[in-house]
Design a protein around this nucleic acid. Sequence first.
DNA 1: TTCATTCATCGTAATTTACCGATTGGATTG
DNA 2: CAATCCAATCGGTAAATTACGATGAATGAA
Lengths: 109, 109
Amino acid sequence: MNTEEALALLSALAHPTRLEAFRLLIRHEPGGLSTGELVEASGLSQSTFSTHLAVMVKAGLVIAEKRGRQQIQRANLDSLRGVMVFLAKDCCQGRTELYEPLLAELTCI
Amino acid sequence: MNTEEALALLSALAHPTRLEAFRLLIRHEPGGLSTGELVEASGLSQSTFSTHLAVMVKAGLVIAEKRGRQQIQRANLDSLRGVMVFLAKDCCQGRTELYEPLLAELTCI
DNA sequence: TTCATTCATCGTAATTTACCGATTGGATTG
DNA sequence: CAATCCAATCGGTAAATTACGATGAATGAA
């Protein structure tokens, strides 16, 4: 996970529509949802949501897979893990005294 | 940390200039840096960086503190922790089987 | 083959963001 | 008080993002 990839992931997450879609996809792991179901849930037009989806797929946040004539979308939990590791480690460059309390908090969820 | 706050933090992080400034501030914890030093490090104009800084401060990513006639900026590690907890917990809404491997990875940094 | 379904892409308009120089306001120094 | 320093804000431009309807390509069904 380099800076560029992390920025793409952060940008992909930093929009209400996309964040909500991602959360919806997480709730539907590991089965995923079709693009049409996501469009319906978003309340936006099909074309508008398609561009949001393209942003997420390009960033690696979502993985698309063809199934029949539908496109099944799945949350990429590896990318979520990646961006969190980036924030904790790469961002806090070696300052363990800074991110260790952060991890402690996370493990106590 | 609600969705709105998390979105603001993600947006604040999702820009090369702002992410780099944040990383720089982390490296300078707990002393912080003056706005002028951050401007110089960014290579941008003073006014441009000032708007970036305002985004970060508004999101709570950075905390400003007046010292003399300078403005000292400090990374807000609580907000970083907050957004990570949001991604791990709120985003993975109760699906412990999803975020536990995620946390396991984080604790092995 | 013909029709319906599914979704990406195109073209476009409106809004937001990013960037700059210039100005202003507040604080310190002389 | 006057001069200086620091940083926010203003005004303006260029680029990116967001949104939509319409079109088109691919797949499956009749």
